[in-house]
């Protein structure tokens, strides 16, 4: 190959590598995890979630997890939730997991909610921390709600997500108020990650399972 040919080949190689690098960087910057929007719109919206003891499918079939219902009524394995700003958001959580118990009983109280919190239709003011299976907490908004676990020996327990209303569950309903736009983390405070040190590894340290983001838009 003559000199001009070599120069052309090297230039083409460099251009190709540069294009690949640029594609990777742009793709990385543009990548956003899928979010699940609340149904309804400002000033009132509804979120429907469920918690399951084990997801039942890859990549971590035995991990505990949240799921969210999208506006089309389909359960989605995602914890990026989108709600309107300056609105009242009513959250319904179908809780299919058994109790683990809170490490800090403080989180057994209800914080930051508007109006009553109901468990299976009955309003309660606090939850015995030993009965908590999970919490739904948005610390930056001051919201924290413990979720009562189903009885250990309850019949017809769910083992694969998404669970159905025919399976053993508790229904928790509460409302909180959103403020200005922003992105806020939410998490579970119950050390519910079975098989991990202090119950706070794996699904407790991974977005998409027991942690997520609340996008207030």
């Amino acid at each position: 190959m003559n000199r001009a040919g070599r120069v052309l080949a090297v230039s083409a190689g460099i251009a190709f590598a540069a294009a690949l690098t640029a594609y990777y960087i742009v793709s990385y910057l543009m990548m956003t995890p899928p979010s699940v929007a609340a149904s309804g719109s400002a000033p009132r919206a509804r979120l429907t979630l469920q918690t399951v003891a084990s997801l039942g499918f890859k990549p971590h079939p035995d991990w505990v997890s949240y799921l969210a219902k999208n506006p089309q009524g389909k359960w989605v394995h995602g914890t990026i939730l989108k709600v309107p700003a300056h609105s009242l958001v009513t959250v319904t959580i179908y809780q299919y997991d058994t109790a683990t118990g809170l490490r800090n009983p403080f989180w057994g109280g209800f914080h930051g909610t508007v109006g009553p919190v109901t468990v299976n239709g009955k309003a309660i003011k606090t939850l015995d921390p030993s009965l908590a299976s999970h919490t739904f907490a948005i610390p930056d908004l001051g919201v924290s709600v413990p979720l009562k676990g189903v009885a250990d020996k309850a019949p017809n327990q769910c083992s694969v997500a998404p669970c159905t209303l025919a399976e053993a569950h508790n229904t928790i309903v509460f409302t909180f108020r959103t403020g200005k736009r922003g992105t806020f983390r939410w998490q579970c405070f119950v050390p519910c990650a079975a098989g991990f040190i202090l119950g706070f590894g794996g699904p407790m340290q991974s977005l998409g399972y027991m942690d997520g983001l609340l996008e207030v838009v």
């Binding site: 683990t100 118990g101 490490r103 009983p105 015995d128 079975a194 202090l198």
Partner: peptide, 19 residues
């Protein structure tokens, strides 16, 4: 009433499914 008596320290308590 659910809070433990005030103590200077807390240890991570064993849980049924944790650890």
């Amino acid at each position: 009433r659910y809070l433990p008596p005030f103590g200077r320290t807390y240890f991570p308590a064993p849980f049924r499914r944790a650890g």
